[in-house]
Nucleic acid binder design. Structure first.
Length: 461
RNA sequence: UCCCCGUUAGCUCAGUCGGUAGAGCAGGUGGCUGUUAACCACCUUGUCCGUGGUUCGAGUCCGCGACGGGGAGCCA
């Protein structure tokens, strides 16, 4: 008897002709006269292994009664399959039912809606679609780390709990150990100085500010971790808990930032094309026809670049009518972004140098006095997927901008300090990991690319 | 948070003009078969989301509520 082999290797023909053992979960069973077929999946790949059990085997009657969802351990000889549909199959000599499953198992061998599967998130990873999603998610996360590691970027674990209440990037979840029914009061207000951290604390909405501090020591760094927003957003693109990737480079300007974003995005496209092919074929066939062609196009083209001002002019000349107005000084809506990338450019495009009024306080002011060194990467079908900027490294400019936008400089004294000593031109960008997964799988709801999604009124499992 | 749409069998859905509910799949029984979401025959399964109203009569029309989805805003 050989050691237990993962089905991915079995289906590659490893152990052909030999006695092997596999362990996994039964996807379907078909019982005939004198012969039974089990499709067994262990999550190591999309395809299941066909197990053939013949009458005369010790536990044949029990095998015939195995229901969808049962866990089994199968010993047998791996052989080439005489029938079409699979190249190899396992001729069982012994089948052990490790964990049975009865007819109430909710995952039937038929199509379910994603809405229903969300209500059984504890079981949905055993389905075809979610198996593919979470294999790709894992592989992509490792590719993100590999990309940065190959280029000498330091991975910094920025804090999840923070007392920065002025990052300006959305509502924060509060972190407290105070008794909610009897908080200590001072002048009618909650006295957070008596709280665990001695100040109002919350879950991070971005690791960027801390990332910048580390870039001023390690040159090139990135963050990759969970991020939280307490916004009451009920859309297919928003979650209360999601993962974000934020590289930051010292001694770098906006063009270096865009160059990194392009290299990074194309690297990840190539990664899934080369390493997640079987799952990608499934998405291309069942979820989003045209997916592979779109990813291949992005992986092969170099990205265009356009000034914000030019983008506005192109939109004004557009023959199509937009729902939202187009005017210099207004932010671009998704419909505008998609027009630019799909109709004007016909591929990925960076839009750079936005009006300072519509961008964050930390972005570097350009010499024209009107714009900041911001960039958004727009891609077909979704619009913006990466947003970044060169940061304001000049102390006086940064402090003035903070005051203009209502942020107390003393509350971010440590951030300003990096501009006092050894300040450098630096730049970075942010990418929502789930939005990347959605782009690379064709899945249209963020709740279906997160194992156990957190959204308003939902934190089950 | 706002605007639309939806909620019917375990699952996916149909249900006409207001007259007490059907199909496929799943499950059960039998048959057949190296099968591929197997197939064939028969059988079982309902708080029609909740609540109030209109009506002789409501799954169907109206009000309110809950939940889900899509769009918008916010953004990643």
């Amino acid at each position: 008897m050989g050691a237990c082999v993962r089905i991915r290797h079995v289906l590659a023909g490893e152990g052909l002709g030999a006695e092997i053992e596999v362990k996994g979960w039964v996807r379907t069973s078909r019982v005939g006269k004198g012969v039974a077929f089990l499709a067994v999946n262990d999550g190591s790949c999309f395809a299941s292994l066909q197990v053939v059990a013949e009458q005369g085997m010790a536990s044949y009657d029990a095998v015939c009664a195995i229901g969808t969802g049962a866990a089994v351990a199968v010993r047998g000889r791996l052989a080439e399959s005489p029938a079409s549909g699979q190249r190899y199959e396992l001729h069982a000599t012994a089948v052990e039912i490790v964990g049975p499953a009865d007819e109430e198992y909710p995952l039937q061998k038929k199509r379910h809606t994603f809405e229903y599967l969300r209500t059984i998130a504890h079981l949905r990873p055993r389905s075809n679609t979610f198996g593919a999603v979470f294999r790709l998610r894992s592989s992509l996360a490792q590719a993100v780390h590999r990309f940065f590691a190959e280029r000498g970027f330091l991975w910094v674990h920025t804090p999840i709990i923070t007392t920065n209440d002025c990052e300006g990037a959305g509502e924060m979840f509060r972190v407290t150990t105070l008794d909610p029914s009897r908080p200590p009061l001072v002048g009618g207000q909650v006295d957070f100085s008596a709280d665990f951290f001695g100040a109002q604390a919350g879950l991070t909405v971005s690791g960027q500010l801390e990332g910048e501090l580390f870039a001023q020591a390690f040159t090139d760094i990135y963050t990759f971790g969970p991020t939280f927003r307490a916004e009451n957003s009920n859309t297919p693109r928003h979650a209360a808990e999601f993962w974000m990737i934020e590289p930051e480079m010292a001694f770098a300007d906006l063009m270096a930032d865009a160059a990194l974003a392009e290299e990074f995005f194309r690297y990840l496209c190539r990664h899934v094309l080369e390493n997640c092919r079987e799952d990608l074929e499934f998405f291309n066939g069942q979820i989003d026809t045209g997916l592979i062609a779109r990813i291949e196009a992005v992986a092969d083209t170099s990205f265009a670049m356009m000034e914000y001002g030019e983008a506005i002019e192109r939109l004004k000349k557009a023959s199509v009518s937009f729902e939202f107005p187009v005017s210099w000084g207004l932010d671009l809506q998704t419909e505008h972004e998609r027009y630019l990338t799909e109709q004007v450019v016909g591929g990925p495009v960076f839009v750079v140098n936005y009006p300072k009024e519509i961008k964050a306080f930390y972005m570097r002011q350009n010499d024209d006095g009107k714009t900041v060194a911001a960039m958004d990467l727009l891609v077909p079908k979704v619009g913006e997927i990466i947003g970044g900027s060169q940061r304001e490294e000049r102390y006086d400019f940064l402090e003035a901008r903070m005051r203009e936008t209502g942020i107390a400089p003393e509350s971010l004294w440590w951030y300003l300090d990096t501009r006092r000593w050894g300040s450098t031109p630096h730049a970075g960008f942010g990418l929502g990991f789930e939005r990347l997964i959605m782009y690379l799988t064709g899945m249209e709801n963020i709740r279906d690319v997160i194992p156990f999604p957190r959204t308003p009124r939902h934190a089950e499992f």
